[in-house]
Amino acid sequence: MPKPTITSANPLTERLLIAVAVGIVGLLIVVPLASVFAEAFAEGPAAWWRALAHDPDTRHAIWLSLTVAPLAVAINTVFGIATAWLVSRFRFPGRSLLITLCDVPFSVSPVVAGLALVLIFGRQGLLGPTLASLGWKVIFSWPGLVLATTFVTLPLVVRELIPVMEAIGPEEELAAVSLGANGWQVFTRVTLPNIRWALLHGIVLANARAMGEFGAVYVVSGHIAGATDTMPLRVEKLFQEYRTPASMAVASVLAGLALVTLVAKFVIERQLEAEARELEAARSLPDTIDGSGTPPDAGPRTSTQASIP
């Protein structure tokens, strides 16, 4: 917490700075956010509900978003854990290239990513004819939506995990291995409990981005109402059809989801901070406690060993 010192500004300047900062955030963020809900409920909650539940295309869009986003997040979770494990626990040629590659989807325009997928899986694409003969449809269908969404959210889980796993270090996992644990046991009993908050943080962020992705999905979906329209695409279509109130109703659901995401993020970040402090405190303990003959959790460790066939 800042205390008044020689370097702090005078109270008047401070107040002015606060006012400008609140003004920036208010005008750019709070007013738009408030207006989503104001516009969505302008004709009352009944109209809002009708716009959402009584339009089969909107219902389908909500359902599609709720299927595509979890699939993309699941792929990202597996990829994130595997890549963070590689990068934080092993040294191998191409490691720093891999770290850079993980960031690529952030700097590639989603539209470009969608186009690249169309060039591979589209009707005139590289694999298009083969896929067509097999009867598989990727572009203008849900697998394309999942691929595009996975691409744009690819860095989110990995980026959360790498710093945390680097900070924790491999000591506990090495100890588990030396006590005879196999890979799965090391992962579920040592690594996963250690990274659970960071993993959840990444999943929450990836899910928010996956639900809201527009550009990449727009290109691969072909925007067929009632078939490949996700919620953000539905928002755009309703807007183009001059049905702004209905469009705002769908947008308000997405905005509500964003607010839930932020609350979850806030709670998780608190946990992460607490764990980082614990780690710091544990690091500053003298070595004798760590190296003492009988660790307090000797009991469960032996039972772990016993369970290994």
């Binding site: 917490m1 702090s8 401070e14 738009p32 809201g212 953000p232 928002v235 755009e236 469009s247 705002m248």
Partner: peptide, 28 residues
């Protein structure tokens, strides 16, 4: 640098654009 009531709220609000779908932002 400055401690004031609502600082944490302001800090959280900064993340809204990361969580809010861009289509919603454009529409609004």
């Amino acid at each position: 640098r400055i401690d004031f009531p609502g600082r944490r709220l302001l800090d959280s609000l900064v993340d809204v654009p990361l969580a809010l779908p861009t289509a919603v932002a454009g529409l609004v």
